[in-house]
Write a protein that binds this DNA or RNA. Structure first.
Length: 127
RNA sequence: AGAGUCCGCCGGACAGUCGCCGUUUCAGCUUCGCUGAAAGGGAGGAAAGUCCGGGCUCCGCAGGGCAGGGUGCCAGGUAACGCCUGGGGGGCGCGAGCCUACGGAAAGUGCAGCAGAGAGUAGACCGCCUAAGCGGACCGGUUUUCGGACCGGACCGCCGGUAAGGGUGAAAGGGUGCGGUAAGAGCGCACCGCGUGGGUGGUAACACGCCACGGCACGGUAAACCCCACCUGGAGCAAGACCAAAUAGGGAUCCAUUGGCGUGGCCCACGCUGGAUCCGGGUAGGUUGCUUGAGGCCUGUGGUGACGCAGGUCCUAGAUGAAUGGCUGUCCACGACAGAACCCGGCUUACAGGCGGACUCUCACC
RNA sequence: CGGUGUGUAGCGCAGCCUGGUAGCGCACUUCCUUCGGGAGGAAGGGGUCGGAGGUUCGAAUCCUCUCACACCGA
């Protein structure tokens, strides 16, 4: 239970980390309001990055709320996730959802991500 | 009780639990640092728009002139302002109050479509007038050499007069009344308005039921050019500084010392010394700036007020892919607009609802 | 975060500085031409000038506020 924290080493920190995920995204989970990209990393933990564009969510208040909820659900799912670099992108309309709907959407997305990644990691990855 | 005006304040609360970001102290590993524990702190009245003004930083020590830009009743406040306070003029409201880009059109230039006679040294379309001048025709009278002549009256036309009235227009060159006249007209007069000079009050804007003079000649537009007064160098924390990494005193072509560069549009002055273009190569970040400030609160004091002064007291976000949140429970008025990114002072715009104070009008009762 | 620019007919743009008529090309409608279509020719329709307020007699144009969209800066 000590691993419920969200410390600094669980985040993507610079542009290079993001570029790796965008270029080598093996796993995708897509929804009307949301897109998750992920690729395996050599660390023992998953790492999270957020791309919440102003173009898709107009108000800063809504952008902050979405980011908090994504981080919060990531923190709760953390021990169940394999070592992946994950980038969550917001699509248009995500800011209009209320907290309950966002929770449902995010939790189901995390479950889908775990399922896809299991299937992907079982196969031997060609390097 | 109803309607309304102004000013100030608040912007869900509490508890549990799981997290995030700084600060301080302690402990451990022990070079920076990392980990753990405790304490305390962690979005707004607009944090917003970026419309102004500053601080700070670099550009050249921020210097002169021109150009450009801004402001625009007066006085004060302020670091400064396009802000605020007080006062004046104008407008709206019964009132409390509210609104106000409000210098100059007798320095000059320009503009005003259409309509209309005329649109800025005015103008005669309709109408009004026929006194003076010319012409035509009629009536009456006198006279006659029977052609006419003269006198008077009224009519028409021309030449004219007239800005009172109609009509056009956003706008037609003071208003009302009386006199005057052919009809009219500041043509004359009275009052009102206006202008000029003076006087009085006021720091001033300005005011005056003060005095004298002028018949009046000054139309609108300056958010058109412009004139006057005052202000104004340019960029912006992605500014800038430091550390580390990489590379490079790489190659080619062209121009050249009355040159070129130095972040502003030009010139001067000043400083530096080759410059421009193309090809090739490389790109990785970290630290700092970063929060104590024209700061908040309280008391006293000067001022009508904005605000100033003195003393006491408090420390109150500082992230950097970017913290200030999730869940549960209880309560109520069932929660609007909305999230710091260098920092302040304003303005403007958005906003569920609630609280307090001062005041105005109407109605009823005592 | 800071700094710029643009909103005009279905689409792409003029007109704005210097205020009175909103115009051009493509597209659309009708007609001519053709056996029919295309091309060509002729005629025609269509615009709250992003929104609100102000200045002016009069605003797409000048001024203020506001809303969108695009671009630039590590």
């Amino acid at each position: 239970m000590t691993s419920f924290g969200f410390p600094r080493f669980s985040r993507l920190l610079n542009a290079g980390d993001y570029r790796q995920v965008f270029n080598g995204a093996k796993i995708k989970v897509s929804d009307k309001h949301l897109l998750i990209l992920a690729s395996p990393n050599p660390l023992s933990r998953p790492r999270l990055g957020l791309v919440i564009a102003k173009k898709n969510i107009r108000l800063a208040v809504h952008r902050n709320r979405v980011k908090r909820l994504v981080r919060e659900t990531f923190r709760q799912q953390d021990p169940a996730l394999p070592p992946l670099d994950i980038v969550v992108l917001a699509r248009r309309g995500l800011g209009e959802l209320d907290n309950q709907a966002l929770h449902q959407l995010l939790n189901s997305s995390w479950k889908r991500l775990v399922k896809y990644s299991r299937r992907h990691l079982d196969r031997p990855t060609p390097t």
